Simulated assay, not measured.
Amino acid sequence: MNLLTTDIKNKVLDNVMQLLDERRAEILKANQKDLDAFTKDDKAMYDRLVVNDKKVDGMIQAVREVQQKDDPVGKVISEVDRNDGLRIINKTAPFGTIMIIYESRPDVTVEAAVLAFKANNKILLKGGKEAIHSNEALVDIWHEALRMNGLSEDYVKLLKLKREETQAFLKNPTEPIDLIVPRGGERLIQFVKEHSSCPVLVSGRGNNFIYVDHTADWEQSIKVILNAKTDKISACNALDKILLDKRIPDLDKKLVHLQKALHEFEVELLVDQQVKEILNNEAVIENEDTWYEEFLALKACVALVSDEMEAIEKINKYSGGHSSAIMTTDQRKAETFMEQVDSGAVYHNASTRFTDGGQMGVGAELAISTDKLHHRGPLGLEQLVTNKYYVYGQGHVRV
């Protein structure tokens, strides 16, 4: 693949922003077709499907932010000058072709494409059938911007494949694929990992935990829990599991307070046997599988633990490795928790809702990686490159 200059890449992005604004009515009309066809049974997916003027503004802003960032390709990582005169330079380089498989969210179509393109990659977009009209309109804008600058439409491709066709494509791609990113729930991730013959970087599974220590500021804890659980239930950084220290003063009263606060937002509670003794009208967690589940709904588990070490053990066993938080006034205890919890983002006295490229200073993101190779956390522009060694000699041979 040819390396494009930063100037030509930024000109394409100028045109993408212009066209997103000019063709706004067309985008909203296409999205309305998708909304009309959706059954609304899955509230979280419906919320992700909606495109309005604010969402279009967000797409434009995402493109602008990426355009303003330095080109990630060709940056020098290291330089070595050997005693024998051999010079070795390690530089960043494009992956090549990235495939992203995602559900519902049309804004991902723009964000994924802008990140891949600025990093000089081609991208294959496999969106869900529920967003087909929205995605077609957005990819058409990309194609027009590419044509306006004399570039091939192949930099951004929309794949319209049914499930069986996707399975076949993953096993035997019709073109080389260097990285696949499944962005969605556990079933989607497992489907891709099972059928893919290419490297897969897992993204999207949340199942996030918060532990409230007995030294925590209780009012602050309630505020953080409500934000993490109810601010956006369709987000992978939303809260699912709440662990409370048994030593919390006036535990019974505080459990009732927590119950009332969550019920005001219509959150369904599932509780362990110890909490059931106090909140006796709540359903008990009967199946261990529930602890592994990402809800993406107004639902949360509440359980008691003896201390932060038991909380850490439980989180590391059941969580998706996405985001975990501790509420405590004990700085040393917070450090222990944050060092020992195996999550991509760990929080002290803050909501898990901040695990987001824009909030963390990364900017637009391709996904939130819960893998450890090659990157963990928000996949921004700088994470969409690999590296290459440039070795300069004068007839050097190894002896």
Score class of each variant (00 low, 15 high):
N387P: 06
A235F: 01
S203N: 09
D21Q: 13
L251G: 05
K317I: 03
E136L: 10
D81S: 14
D289A: 15
R105C: 04
E164W: 00
Y318C: 11
G361W: 00
I141S: 06
S343E: 04
R48G: 03
V267C: 10
T352R: 05
M327W: 03
A350L: 09
T355G: 12
H375T: 14
E79I: 11
D47W: 02
N31V: 09
Y46K: 08
H257G: 05
A112E: 05
T166C: 12
S152V: 08
K9D: 08
Q340F: 01
D342F: 00
G96V: 04
P182K: 01
V256Q: 12
Q273V: 10
G150E: 07
V56E: 11
V275T: 08
A303C: 14
T39F: 02
G58I: 04
I248V: 14
G96N: 06
V212Q: 04
G357I: 03
D307G: 07
D81A: 12
Y292Q: 13
K388H: 04
V156H: 01
I98M: 10
D21R: 04
E130I: 02
V267N: 08
D36H: 02
E308P: 13
K193S: 11
M360I: 01
Q331I: 13
A345I: 09
E313Q: 15
N207C: 08
V156K: 00
R205F: 00
R205K: 15
I225V: 14
V399K: 15
E130C: 05
M59I: 06
V156D: 10
L124V: 07
I315N: 04
H396D: 13
G85Y: 00
G206V: 02
V156N: 06
V399W: 06
L270E: 15
D41W: 05
W291S: 10
A228L: 09
A25H: 04
E277L: 14
A367E: 04
Y392M: 13
L243E: 01
K43N: 12
L262G: 11
R247V: 05
Q359D: 14
S196R: 08
S221Q: 04
E313N: 15
I285Q: 07
C236I: 03
D107M: 06
K254H: 10
V63A: 15
L159T: 02
D371K: 03
E219N: 14
I177M: 08
E79R: 13
A131K: 09
G206R: 00
D356I: 02
A168S: 12
G128M: 04
E264L: 12
L298D: 09
L384M: 14
D356S: 06
I101V: 13
I210N: 03
K223G: 13
F295W: 04
R87L: 13
H133A: 15
L226V: 13
V212E: 07
I326L: 07
L244K: 01
Q340P: 05
D356L: 05
F265V: 10
A37T: 07
W142N: 08
K254V: 12
S323T: 08
G358E: 15
T92L: 08
I225G: 11
L158W: 02
N316M: 02
E111P: 03
K9I: 08
S306Y: 05
L201P: 09
K299M: 12
